[in-house]
Design a protein around this nucleic acid. Structure first.
Length: 247
DNA sequence: AATCTCTTCAACCGCCTCCGG
DNA sequence: TCCGGAGGCGGTTGAAGAGAT
């Protein structure tokens, strides 16, 4: 638990507290939440400060009703990801995970309720036979699979640098085979959009982005689990795409 | 006008992962 | 390798407001 409940204030935030927190973040920046209560002079726990900032005070937070296209996106993403609210919110500029979660629970969940019986459950709590939820899958490719993929690529390309998917680049320097994740905003967004437009067209998507767009400094790092650590949660593979790498 | 019920959403809770010592 | 602290996430709660009776 966070500190002593006897001393740490809970419940709704006052305007004065909001102001203190805002000033603190403006001065010191986001992060280091354990230092925020002391720096801001707030009698709140770090988690409470973080939550208040992320869900309410942070600039550019969009409030009010969800637009039709936002609702549509939430539904599509929820079908793909399930209750991964932070990921879903990441695709909705200005919306927070809490907002999306609340909206889903109050508006969308209700629409799915089967009214045929007293004990009926919301559809989201029932098995969904025709819906495949894609869970985030670590982008750990074995060296073997990297070699296979690179060989396959080199059958058609006389190049020592090959892109095999939107988020993975393979390269060799005669001695080693390297793999890289590059989930930059543009590529990631294209991948998401493509997946939602047509999940079947994975193959067609693989070569949409040029490997030349990638920063050479990234290519200079050999792949290992540590290099992947910072990006691993950002990269997801469709079942079909996964099978391309792991036959 | 008073009371009850329902809805909304801000905030809390507990758990997990990551990272540094 | 282990441990503790920090950050982050999803599930849940409960206060407050809105609507119904």
């Amino acid at each position: 638990m966070e500190g002593s409940s006897l001393r740490v204030r809970k419940g709704a935030w006052t305007e004065e507290e909001d102001l203190l927190l805002k000033k603190c973040i403006e001065k010191y920046g986001e992060g280091k939440w354990h230092q925020v209560p002391a720096r801001a002079g707030l009698n709140r726990c770090r988690k409470s400060c973080r939550l208040r900032w992320l869900n309410y005070l942070k600039p550019n937070i969009k409030r009010g009703h969800f637009a039709a296209d936002e609702v549509d996106l939430i539904i599509r993403l929820h079908n793909l990801l399930g209750n991964r609210w932070s990921l879903i919110a990441g695709r909705l500029p200005g919306r927070t995970a809490n907002d999306v979660k609340n909206y889903w629970n109050t508006h969308l969940l209700k629409k799915n309720i089967d009214t045929s019986g007293k004990n009926s459950k919301p559809i989201s709590h029932q098995p969904k036979p025709n819906t495949k939820t894609i869970k985030p899958r670590p982008h750990i490719l074995s060296k073997h699979s990297l070699l296979i993929s690179l060989d396959e690529y080199n059958n058609n390309n006389n190049n020592n640098r090959a892109e095999v998917s939107n988020n993975v680049v393979l390269a060799n320097d005669r001695n080693n085979v390297y793999g890289y994740c590059f989930p930059n905003d543009h590529d990631e967004m294209m991948w998401w959009e493509n997946m939602m437009i047509n999940e079947k067209e994975v193959d067609g998507y693989q070569l949409q982005c040029s490997a030349d767009d990638i920063d050479q400094s990234v290519l200079d790092q050999p792949m290992n689990e540590k290099n992947y650590g910072s990006t691993i949660d950002e990269v997801f593979l469709d079942e079909e795409l996964w099978n391309v790498f792991n036959p």
